[in-house]
């Protein structure tokens, strides 16, 4: 892997057919992200934030151009290799938490490790570590239905980081949370970023999230409008 960047997109275009015409969701996106970044894609609804995040997460591939993620060209990956990449190196956090309702908090966080065939004692250790990170070790046996929104999202964070990924992609993680919970979650993620050196990329239009970002990429109509980097000191 090239040390200078974790992700590099070159002339990415994403085109959706819309009846007779087409919709250009992403238009010539050229971005690089370094290891350890805490960056956000911001912009109005429909600007292409989710689309770009999904391409970076190997869930979707660009119509044109190239996206290199952790040394792999997303557009060339087979379905299997893409799954492998996600399983080992990328964590996802969603707006709607998306915990598996029939499983306990512990089992939800454990799931990615099951896919990695990690033996049970080590799984247990990693899951409890992750739950401690988000401050929910005491809720390990609860069911998602019994958690508040903030707690659910913290479980989702634990699930994303339990496998010690290089990269976490978070699509509107605070959209369903109140201010207090939003701040709590952002602080947790800043900590994970600083202490575990996990790279975070957000898609958001939440002002609260933006205050924590160290880099803000503004999208509009599928194009990069602005790309700003902030010194942490300035924010504090």
């Amino acid at each position: 892997m090239n040390n200078s960047y974790l992700i590099k997109t070159e002339h990415i275009k994403k085109i959706y057919p819309m009846g007779l015409t087409t919709l250009i969701a992403l238009d010539d996106i050229n971005l690089t992200f370094k290891k350890g970044e805490f960056a956000g894609l911001v912009g109005p609804s429909g600007s292409g934030k989710t689309t770009l995040l999904n391409i970076i997460g190997a869930l979707d591939s660009p119509s044109e151009g190239s996206a290199e993620v952790l040394g792999k060209k997303v557009e060339t990956l087979s379905h299997r290799s893409a799954a492998h990449l996600r399983n080992w190196y990328i964590g996802f956090i969603f707006q709607t938490f998306n915990l598996l309702p029939v499983y306990t908090v512990f089992e939800n966080v454990e799931f990615p490790l099951l896919l990695q065939n990690i033996p049970s004692p080590k799984r247990k250790k990693l899951v409890m570590e992750a739950l401690e990170w988000v401050g929910l070790a005491d809720r390990a046996n609860s069911k998602p239905a019994h958690l508040s929104g903030g707690e659910s999202q913290r479980v989702a964070i634990a699930r994303a980081i339990v496998k010690k990924p290089e990269l976490v992609l978070a699509d509107e993680p605070t959209a369903n949370l109140d201010a207090e919970n939003s701040h709590h979650i952002m602080r947790t993620m800043v900590q994970l970023n600083e202490e575990l050196k996990i790279t975070f990329i957000f898609a958001t239009h939440d002002e609260k999230v933006m205050r924590y970002l160290k880099r803000k990429i503004s999208l509009n109509d599928g194009k990069v409008e602005k790309d700003e980097i902030f010194e942490l000191e300035v924010k504090k």
């Binding site: 997460g57 379905h79 799954a83 990449l85 996600r86 399983n87 080992w88 969603f94 799931f111 896919l115």
Partner: peptide
């Protein structure tokens, strides 16, 4: 589908 989507995102492949 929701569950399956999450599992795909987490890195399970379709065959699995």
């Amino acid at each position: 589908y929701g569950e399956i989507g999450v599992r795909l995102a987490i890195g399970e492949n379709k065959g699995h």
